[in-house]
């Protein structure tokens, strides 16, 4: 009996150890952390905004390609944000998401739609001069503000 069971137990424990060893590798790939992801997305958005503000303030020369690249980042933000505020991520990870995202999901989605449409309109306008760029930027910023007003808590 004893000798017959031993190899089986050996196999079992080896499988277990293998699983345990592989766990840290599998972890990051499977583990979905919406709070970290949306914070990264906001951080990317801010990076993309930097050169645009520089141009708006006259600190950087107007550059059409840079504007296009930044607008593409904004379009991605609008698109991906929709799925990054699932139930259960109302708190934790130092999130600045306001409870209204969950209590007024339709309003939040509308704010994202407004953002997405403002970005699309900016891409359509494709401004070619610094002067033409100013009002385009303002209209996109208007939709950022609307969302930050209703759906973000300022923690600092």
């Amino acid at each position: 009996m004893r000798s017959a069971r031993q190899p089986q137990r050996h196999t079992l424990s080896r499988a277990l150890v293998t699983c345990l060893l592989l766990l840290p590798l599998a972890g990051p790939a499977d583990h979905h952390d919406p709070i970290a992801e949306r914070q990264q997305l906001m951080s990317d958005t801010r990076e993309a905004l930097k050169p645009l503000i520089g141009m708006s303030r006259g600190q950087l020369d107007f550059d059409r390609e840079t504007v296009r690249a930044s607008l593409a980042v904004f379009a991605r933000t609008a698109d991906e944000s929709r799925d990054l505020y699932p139930d259960g991520t109302q708190s934790g990870g130092d999130t600045e998401a306001k409870a209204t995202i969950w209590s007024d999901r339709a309003g939040f989605n509308q704010a994202l739609t407004d953002f997405s449409e403002a970005v699309a309109a900016a891409q359509q306008a494709d401004p070619q001069t610094a002067e033409a760029f100013q009002p385009v930027l303002r209209s996109v910023l208007g939709t950022c503000k609307a969302c930050h007003d209703g759906y973000r808590v300022d923690k600092d």
Partner: peptide, 12 residues
Amino acid sequence: AGVDPEFDVVGG
């Protein structure tokens, strides 16, 4: 314009 020196857009 509502953008601060750290490129954050005003909220609240």
